[in-house]
Structures are given as structure tokens and as C-alpha cells.
Amino acid sequence: MKAITAEPGRAGSVRVEEIDAPEPAGGELLVEGLALGICGTDRELLSGVYGSAPTGRSRLVIGHESLGRVLSAPPGSGFRAGEHVVGVVRRPDPEPCGACAHGEFDMCRNGRYRERGIKELDGFGAQRWTVEPEFAVRVDAALGLSGALLEPASVVAKAWDQLDRVGARAWYRPAVAVVTGAGPIGLLAALMGRQRGLEVHVVDRVEDGGKPALVGALGAEYHAEDPGAVLAETEADIVLETTGAGPVISAVLGRDRPYSLTALVGLGDGARSEALDLAALGTRMVLSNAVVLGSVNANVRHWTTAAEALARADGEWLASLVTRRVPLTELDTAFEHRPEDIKVLIDLQS
């Protein structure tokens, strides 16, 4: 079968190659790989700055934004042939820390977790893969290839969960949310905000193209202007920052709103530093009971919540997030940056 592999640490080593088809171990599902989403982490693997191969090997099967169809499932697994599933990315430490031992592997304390397609475990960028039932999540087959959006949706579902947990420390009834960035994470964050009945504003630097229309279709408002001005005008209760860009983070952290909650979800490249008056920032946070939290990865419950959110979403809207479907035979083009791209999927069976 064909698989997408890379040699972590070596730039330009991503390629399609023939490997042996997997044999499911006891209790595992055997899955036909349908599609694979591409994100910044995959581009870091391509550039050789991230990732690690399984022990004793130099190459890693990449891919963590999965979608597949169950080919076989053992009795008692809770799955059956023909169902669409995705694989949870992270696994607990082999010698688990306290968080991993309690099933909270997305909050690993020692960094020894493993991640499929990224760190020490082969991923889902193959025409067939296996997965343990406890790390498989069913996705509505009616979504088609849009089901591959479940991994980024799970990241967003976790961020909303963390915001709720912090907000619940006192009376909590948010009304307005601002999302900075209109990439896949930002758009899915806006979707979940609207599903919660919030007034949602999305800020991005793109002035035309598909993003404003996608935001408008949610019943949210799109802004191509200074994030600080939007935050001041809307008096947002919640901010989800998805860009990782220093100037945007500075604007987000500089707002003055009592009991404000901010989730940082985006990862920047560190190419540009920002000067912050930390004493003034700390004073504002203390006096306003503000919280800024970082959120990464997701637990199984977040994947399940995300699957429910996608199932409730408008299918045509979700499909519009997928701006390119690339055949496996044209792998190199999947990693190209194109202005109109939102989410690029690789069709693993073409």
C-alpha cells in the first residue's frame, strides 16, 4: 500500500512510498484511509524542524488529521465495518505522569506523550491504518471528506471546554466572543461560538475572498481591521486567539474588560517579538479578574464533542472550508501556500 513518510529532522524528505499493509493487533480496528488534512505541523515536518520517528527507524508515516472507513472491527469494539472514523492523535506516556495516568493525556506534565504522525508513532497518512477502539471516534458519514476536519475541531472544542471551566469559577453568562484569525481553527471556533448562541466577531487581515462569506453564513460578523479596535467596540467576554501573531496577541492581551477570558490557541513562528509592559498587563489582569490560558491538543471527550458539533453544522458550509483536494499522486502540491487556501485535504485513495 502507499503511505506518506518523512525522515524527521531532514528537510524535503516527505515522499509517497510503498510499505506493508498493517495487520490489526488484538482488539484493533482496521481502517481504509480516505483523506488526510494538512496543517502547519505537517509543513514543519516537511521543513525538518519537528517530529520524531518510531524507535529503531529513521522514517515516520506522517498525518494526524485523519478520516477513514472501518474495514474490520472485532466483536465488542463498539464499531462496525463501513463506519467513518478518525484516530485520536495523542497517546499517554509509556510510563504515565499523573495526568496521563488519569486519562488527561492532553495535559501531559512531562512531555513524554507520543503522537501519531508527529512524535514516535506512525500516523494516518496511509491507505490503510489501525487504531485501538478507545482512540477511535465515529464521525457522521454524511459529512463525506469534511469529516477530516474533526482533528482541528477537537482542538477548538477543548479550548471552549477550558474557557467554560474557568468561567464557572463565578457567575458566567458570556454574550460576545471575538475570534482572531479566519483559518480552519478560527472558522471552527466561530462555528462553535454560534452554536452556543453567542454573538461572534471574526477578525482577519483578508478583505475579500471566501472567508468573509463563510463568517457571514454563520450569522457572525467579519472584520478586516485592527484587532484592538474590534475588541474595544465589541466589549467581548471571550477571545479565542488563533493566529499566533505577536501584534494580534498584544492587542488581545491589552484589552481592559472585567472578568475577561482569553484562550490562546495559535502557534507563532517567533520571527517577530513584541514589547509588552508586563507590570501594566499584570495590574489589569488582577484588577479585572482576567484569565489568559493556553490550550493545545485534545482529549477523547473533546473529539466526541467536536464530532457532535460537526454533525449539527451545515454540511455545505463545512465542505466550503475544504478549498483543495489533492490526489496522493500530486503530494507536493498539497504543501504549497496558496492565497485562497483554508483547508487542504489529500485524497489517499487517488
Rank of each mutant, 00 (worst) to 15 (best):
L191N: 03
T329A: 15
R57C: 01
V70W: 00
S273Y: 03
D347Q: 12
H201V: 03
L121N: 06
E316W: 06
V248F: 06
L267W: 11
A271C: 03
R109L: 15
R196Q: 11
A220H: 07
S154L: 11
G63R: 01
A35W: 05
N297T: 13
V49H: 15
T130A: 06
S52G: 13
L45Q: 08
P92V: 03
I4G: 10
Y259F: 14
E241D: 06
A175F: 06
K211N: 07
D237F: 07
L188P: 05
G117W: 00
D269P: 02
G37C: 03
P24C: 09
A99R: 15
A309R: 09
T41R: 04
G210M: 04
R301G: 07
I118P: 07
A126W: 03
N299M: 12
R10T: 13
F124S: 00
R91I: 04
Y50N: 11
S288M: 11
I346P: 04
A275F: 06
A307W: 04
A213H: 07
D20R: 14
G167R: 13
P258Q: 07
A313K: 04
V292G: 07
I62T: 14
S320A: 15
V49W: 12
A21P: 10
V200S: 10
A334M: 11
R138E: 08
L214T: 06
T283P: 00
E28V: 09
E233W: 05
G27T: 14
T333I: 13
G125N: 02
A153C: 04
L310Q: 07
R109E: 15
G294H: 11
F105Q: 09
A217F: 05
V203C: 08
G209F: 06
L321D: 08
G76L: 11
G40T: 09
V252N: 00
P96G: 02
S13A: 12
V291N: 14
V86Q: 07
G282A: 14
E28T: 07
G210K: 02
H302A: 09
V300T: 12
M1P: 13
A153M: 14
V215L: 04
